[in-house]
């Protein structure tokens, strides 16, 4: 197999933002054990629609852990709309590339991010509806 880049190794050995967020604004859960990777991405979004925190939990190979770590780093501080535009290609580039057989890991990271954002939007819609109903 091709070698991992030094950036991938850095994020694998010292991953950023491992863990869960209590009362998250959104959660994305993707993958299954049969394909070998499971990612869970948690985001916290403030009332200005800025991602103030992101954390992950991942069951997977070195590339899966590194892409999870990288994607959390890339979205913190961005608005939700900006974060949504972070693609698997951008994550791969930020990691200095991935071996071909590991490209699916970056796809999984993008999917986890999209799902977390979708979840956030669903939740805020519900909240808004609840407020409107009460109001």
């Amino acid at each position: 197999m091709e070698q991992y880049s030094s950036k991938v190794m850095e994020h694998f050995t010292s991953p950023k933002n491992v863990g869960e967020i209590e009362n998250p604004s959104g959660v994305g859960h993707v993958g299954n054990p049969v394909c070998g990777d499971i990612m869970e991405l948690y985001i916290k979004v403030d009332d200005k629609e800025v991602v103030t925190d992101a954390k992950f939990k991942t069951f997977g190979c070195g590339a899966a852990i590194a892409t999870s770590s990288m994607v959390t780093e890339m979205i913190i501080g961005k608005t939700v709309d900006e974060a949504e535009k972070v693609s698997n290609r951008a994550v791969t580039e930020a990691l200095g590339g991935l071996p071909k057989v590991k490209m699916h890991c970056s796809v999984l990271a993008e999917e986890a991010l999209k799902k977390a954002i979708d979840d956030y939007r669903e939740r805020s819609k519900d909240e808004k509806n609840n407020k409107d109903n009460k109001g």
Binding site: F12, G36, G60, C61, G62, A64
Partner: peptide, 14 residues
């Protein structure tokens, strides 16, 4: 259980 083999190899390799 609950961890993936390749990441174990990489950490042991370190």
């Amino acid at each position: 259980n609950n961890v993936e083999g390749e990441s174990v190899i990489m950490m042991l390799d370190m």
